[in-house]
């Protein structure tokens, strides 16, 4: 019998959706042994793989190390013992892209809202640069880790608004942008390319969860729980629930299946 492939799901608070789907994942993918490791967004951005191949909080950050141990049962995750790593990352330039989409008309596109005009070349350059800044950081955090897969933080749910308790600029504004579908296509293509150039496979948010470009169906936000404390419901329409986590993991598993990499028996 072949030993299960060892999978690490690493990332921000959005790892919670997958963590709370652990039972579903285990039932659907008995050939995968999944370990979860999450840190709050800001602390995740400071964390990185050390010289021994262990993903850990920033050196000297004892408080986050304690938090990591409490949430994950370990301060650091040894990725040398892992066959594939799936990172649930931040928004990877998405917010900047959506601000542009919400506040500019692209001269090359047909619709006009009497907003400042920018060229498609400028829009593309801005989007690619915003993505590259974040993807470079991701690549640095996981230097030497392969194979590496990455998903965006989930799109917020369609319930988000421009103001109020579910305020999520720029998603709420960009939702009304007439060319948002085009922006979505361009963004995903640019992100896929940027990640691939750095040896990272992009795992897009599953279509079944998407209500509209850059927005998630609200059902996937209901009952979302805080990744740090089981039972604490977030209901912020930014974090998603276990159903979302299971769906995203299925998308990852499809990408994984398409990848040839050393099995546990042959990996050195």
């Amino acid at each position: 019998m072949t030993a299960p492939r060892r999978i690490a799901v690493v990332g921000t608070s959005n790892t919670g959706a997958l963590k709370y789907a652990a039972d579903t994942i285990a039932a659907e993918f008995p050939d995968l042994a999944v370990t979860f490791y999450g840190l709050p967004g800001g602390k995740f951005a400071e964390a990185a793989v050390d010289a021994e191949g262990r993903f850990r909080p920033a050196p000297g950050d004892a408080e986050t190390a304690r938090l990591a141990a409490r949430i994950n049962g370990t301060e650091a995750l040894d990725l040398t013992e892992i066959d594939a790593t799936f990172v649930i990352s931040d928004t990877l330039g998405m917010a900047q892209t959506l601000f542009l989409a919400a506040r500019c008309d692209v001269v090359d596109w047909p619709t006009r809202r009497d907003l400042p005009l920018i060229s498609a070349a400028c829009f593309q350059a801005a989007m690619e640069t915003a993505i590259a800044d974040r993807v470079d950081l991701l690549a640095r955090q996981f230097r030497g880790v392969a194979p590496l897969y990455a998903a965006l933080a989930p799109y917020p749910s369609v319930a988000v608004t421009r103001t109020g308790p579910h305020r999520q600029e720029p998603y709420a504004s960009a939702a009304r942008a007439p060319e948002i579908g085009r922006v979505h296509t361009l963004y995903r293509a640019a992100l896929t390319h940027a990640l691939a150039r750095r040896g990272i496979t992009f795992v897009p948010q599953p279509e079944e969860t998407v209500a509209a470009p850059f927005l998630t169906k609200p059902a996937y936000a209901v009952g979302a729980m805080d990744f740090r404390a089981e039972g604490r419901i977030l209901d912020d329409h930014r974090h998603m629930n276990a159903a979302f986590g299971a769906s995203l993991f299925r998308a990852f598993a499809l990408a994984l299946a398409a990848t040839e990499f050393p099995t546990p028996d042959t990996k050195e």
């Binding site: 900047q96 959506l98 601000f99 542009l100 400042p116 920018i118 400028c122 350059a125």
Partner: peptide, 13 residues
Amino acid sequence: APRGMPPEVARRF
């Protein structure tokens, strides 16, 4: 430069 445009891109354009 519109919000969301990285400074280096803004300057180039």
